[in-house]
């Protein structure tokens, strides 16, 4: 999937001149973004640059100060709570720290979005859906464990499973591989690719990890001082002479040099 393939497809997320500040701290300062159906975009940027804030605005958890954010044809900050809830059931949000409900077992965690959104499902249908996503993320044995009994990588994958269970049209991954060993990271990378292929999702993948960006994304963008400094395909961005892009690249692929 190269750039040209997706240009004719309809856009699922489009952001225009987005600005967001917290008090006197300007976090986002004119972000423009366009994601086409089936496209994976990796967003890179150093810690505190506002990557998490960006996807929280896309899912309506934070309100933009200025600019328009259109998701699946709806402006997230203008629609009614009922419309927003309906929209959210089509967006999967995988949190930076997994955010599993720690008073519930893995089974209850996975059942929660399903029960809350589709009231007409039978017990067996729910059970079936839970088993399906657990197999998808490769953790069927954890079904009756509590989140506190899982490792960090397992929690991440259960967090992704919890968002997949509603078969979302858009996935937002907040640092899916941060703090994980290379083997688990590459498993998660293949999972992200598999989700894109299988569910036809469009995704934003926030990451510091260039291997993850290279393997999972069609395009990458670098967020610096509240704006996208550079965006395009992986090679376009990292073969450029831009200093920040080079710093990212050299840190991640130090052996290349």
């Amino acid at each position: 999937m190269k750039n040209n393939d997706v240009t004719e497809k309809k856009s699922v997320i489009s952001i225009n001149n987005l600005k967001k500040s917290f008090g006197s701290l300007k976090v986002l300062d004119g972000v423009n973004l366009n994601i086409k159906l089936g496209e994976n975009l990796a967003v890179l940027g150093k810690s505190g640059s506002g990557k998490s804030v960006l996807i929280k605005i896309i899912s309506g958890l934070l309100k933009p100060d200025e600019g328009t954010v259109t998701v699946l044809g709806l402006e997230v900050d203008k629609i009614s709570p009922v419309e927003l809830r309906a929209l959210r059931s089509k967006i999967g949000f995988s949190f930076q720290n997994s955010a599993l409900y720690d008073s519930m077992t893995v089974r209850e965690n996975l059942a929660f979005p399903l029960i809350r959104n589709k009231t007409n499902l039978s017990k067996t249908e729910i059970q079936h859906a839970i088993e399906e996503v657990l197999n998808e993320v490769g953790l069927p044995q954890t079904i009756d464990q509590m989140p506190s009994e899982l490792s960090g990588g397992q929690r991440k994958r259960i967090g992704i499973a919890r968002t997949l269970i509603l078969k979302p049209e858009i996935m937002l991954y907040d640092e899916p591989t941060a703090g994980l060993d290379p083997i688990t990271s590459s498993e998660i990378n293949s999972l992200i690719k598999k989700v894109q292929a299988q569910y036809k999702t469009s995704s934003i993948i926030i990451t510091h990890d260039l291997t993850c960006a290279k393997n999972t994304a069609d395009n990458v963008a670098i967020l610096v001082q509240g704006k996208f400094l550079k965006s395009g395909s992986f090679d376009e961005v990292f073969k450029s002479e831009n200093e920040i892009a080079r710093t990212f690249y050299e840190y991640n692929f130090i052996n290349d040099k």
Partner: peptide, 17 residues
């Protein structure tokens, strides 16, 4: 603890009030 570990946000994005 649900607030600071973003479980409340997670509930909100899974379309629950």
């Amino acid at each position: 603890s649900m607030k600071v570990t973003e479980q409340i946000d997670a509930m909100e994005v899974s379309a629950t009030n």
